[in-house]
Structure formats: structure tokens, C-alpha cells
């Protein structure tokens, strides 16, 4: 009997070793360890043995049972590992194939600049005022100290609708609207971004382009306040190290009038191709609001003073993003527009 049991034990170990999958292994377990199995049937024959033999045979049976069970478990683990490994291998992918798009689209560079400038001035307590692109001659010119026949009208060849209406040639008329709405009471702190129109078309001029007008009016506003405001803007827009310098210029609605240059952000002021070797880049026009404008727009020019500035939107975008032709803003070539997805 012992011999028979040992032989079965050997057979079972052989079978376990050869099992190639978990199903076979389960069958082996049933074949050798289930109560009805041949091996287990020897347990019922134990009662015919002497007590010493029974103890001895019992121990042998237990050892064999345990050994088969352990071997099956070991084999099971090994087979499971192989199976998992196969699964993982099978599931391995080419991680360089295209991913499913979850990307942002893109802001237009024009509105990217408008949004950035707006944020900067909102942070300084400004509000955003908007006007109409179809304006009256009165607001576009006359209230801004440009009466009919004034030579400054030559600076801006405008699109007229009739004698009194035109496509606004600047965002400055918004100044006049805001001032008149305040009934002579300051303070005013606004910027006004928007589209403007002039009869002009080449690589640096488009018949439609954008401006951001700024206006601050209060009782003690001076030229130094304008300078510091422009400095804050330049640093926020073009970097902490930027400086601002002002040159005398002319706009009918400001006096004194200046062109403001910022130190070149490409070369830091040493001189490069962007700043044409001068170290400075012209970015905006500004000045102290002309007393005639204050008076015509309902403010007492003896009591109030103010400053105004005008920023070219495309000009800033062209500088900041290195865009070489203003017409690209209006072509909307997907390959161009897409480049501004992080703005």
C-alpha cells in the first residue's frame, strides 16, 4: 500500500510539472486531492492497519497530500505569472502614436494683447470702456481739438459714411464719450481697446487695425504720473527690466505730446536688429489732455488735468511675437493662428 501511494505521489508530481495551464492544474488537484480520488481512497483502508502502521501511514499520507498541494500552489503561481506576463506583453502599445486631442485652441494674437493689456490696467484700478466703430465727426475729431480743416486731419485719412458719420480713425472718441458722461466730475481711469479704420494698406499698415486708448483725469494729474504709469505697463508687458523714455511729439488732443519708447527687450538696450541698433523701441503715443478737450467735454480745465495714451495693438503683438506683416492678422491661416495657443 505504501508502495502504491508513493507511486501515485510520483505520478502526481510528474503531472504537476507538466501542467501547462491553470485548467490542467485544477484537474490535477481534483484527480489527486478530491475525496473520491484514488489517493484519498487509501485513507479508508487505514482502519485495517495496526495502530503503529496506521500512525506511520497517516503521516506518510499527510506528507504526500501536503507536498502535492504545495507543488500545485507553486505551479499555479508560476502559471499565473506567465499568464500575466503574456497579458502585459499583449497589451503593450506604441506610445508615440497620436494622442486623443485635449488641446486648447488658440486666442487670436490681437485679442491676446487686448486681454493682457486689459488685465494689467484692471490691476491698477482701470475700467474698460468701449465705443462704437461708426462714429460722428464731432466725437472722432471736433471734441478732440481737431476742427474741420485742421491739418491734423491729414494724418488720418478716414473712411466717411456721410458728412457727419465715419468709421472711427482712432479709439480716442471713447475719451470724449466717457468724459461727457461724467458731467465734469472726476476721477476717470479707463482704457478703451478696439478696432479703428484708416485709408492705408501695406506691410505695416492695414485699413483696419487696433488701438488701446488710456485716459486718467483728476485734479492733480501731471506728466510724471503719465511716465510712471507707462513704466508699470512696460514692465508688466515686456519684462521687469524695461525702461521708458519720452520724446516730444504732436497729437492735437494732448499738450505736451510725446512718443514713448521702451528699452529693447531683445538686446536689453545694447542695440540689435529689432531696435535698429538704437536700444529703444517706439511703442506708443501719449500726453497731457489738451485744455480745449477737457473744456469741450465738460471739465473745468483750471481744476482738472489728465493724461491719455494710445497703444497700437498689432504693433505690440508684432514686437512681442515677432510677426512681420500686419496682413497676417487678418488672413486667419490656421497654421498662423494655432501658434498662439498658450497666450
Amino acid at each position: 500500500m505504501q508502495e502504491k501511494v508513493k507511486q501515485i505521489h510520483q505520478e502526481s508530481l510528474e503531472e504537476i510539472k507538466n501542467a501547462s495551464n491553470l485548467e490542467d492544474l485544477q484537474n490535477i488537484r481534483n484527480k489527486y486531492l478530491s475525496k473520491k480520488s484514488e489517493l484519498m481512497s487509501f485513507m479508508s483502508q487505514m482502519k485495517n492497519l495496526s495502530s503503529d502502521e496506521r500512525i506511520c501511514f497517516g503521516q506518510l499520507m499527510n506528507t504526500i497530500k501536503e507536498d502535492i498541494s504545495n507543488k500545485i500552489e507553486e505551479k499555479k503561481k508560476a502559471l499565473e505569472e506567465i499568464k500575466l506576463k503574456e497579458q502585459l506583453e499583449k497589451e503593450t502599445i506604441d506610445f508615440t502614436l497620436p494622442s486623443r486631442s485635449f488641446s486648447r485652441g488658440s486666442k487670436h494674437p490681437f485679442s491676446a494683447i487686448v486681454d493682457q493689456v486689459s488685465q494689467i490696467f484692471i490691476g491698477m484700478g482701470y475700467q474698460i470702456a468701449e465705443g462704437s466703430e461708426v462714429e460722428t465727426d464731432e466725437f472722432n475729431f471736433e471734441l478732440l481739438n481737431v476742427p474741420k480743416g485742421h491739418p491734423a486731419r491729414d494724418m488720418q485719412d478716414s473712411f466717411f459714411i456721410n458728412d457727419t458719420l465715419l468709421m472711427r480713425s482712432q479709439t480716442s472718441p471713447v475719451q470724449a464719450h466717457v468724459m461727457l458722461s461724467k458731467n465734469g466730475q472726476g476721477p476717470i481711469k479707463i482704457i478703451s481697446p478696439g478696432k479703428v479704420y484708416r485709408r492705408d494698406d501695406d506691410a505695416t499698415h492695414s485699413h483696419q487695425f487696433g488701438q488701446i486708448e488710456g485716459l486718467v483725469i483728476d485734479k492733480n494729474i501731471n506728466m510724471g504720473n503719465l511716465l510712471s504709469t507707462l513704466e508699470l505697463f512696460a514692465k508688466a508687458m515686456f519684462g521687469e527690466k524695461r525702461q521708458v523714455r519720452m520724446r516730444s511729439s504732436y497729437f492735437p488732443f494732448t499738450e505736451p505730446s510725446v512718443e514713448a519708447d521702451i528699452s529693447c527687450f531683445e538686446c536689453g538696450g545694447k542695440g540689435c536688429s529689432l531696435c535698429k541698433g538704437t536700444g529703444w523701441i517706439e511703442v506708443l503715443g501719449a500726453g497731457m489732455v489738451h485744455p480745449n478737450v477737457l473744456r469741450m467735454c465738460g471739465f473745468d480745465e483750471k481744476e482738472y488735468q489728465g493724461f491719455a495714451f494710445g497703444i497700437g495693438i498689432e504693433r505690440v503683438a508684432m514686437l512681442k511675437y515677432g510677426i512681420d506683416d500686419i496682413r497676417k492678422f487678418y488672413q486667419n491661416d490656421k497654421r498662423f493662428n494655432k501658434q498662439f495657443s498658450k497666450e
Partner: peptide, 15 residues
Amino acid sequence: IKSQLPLMVTTVGGY
């Protein structure tokens, strides 16, 4: 011209 920020009442900025 010396750079000096405007001294004026605080205004609420925003959209």
C-alpha cells in the same frame, strides 16, 4: 520728468 504714480482716490477696476 520724475516718475511718480498718481495720488488719487482708489478706483475699482474690472470688466
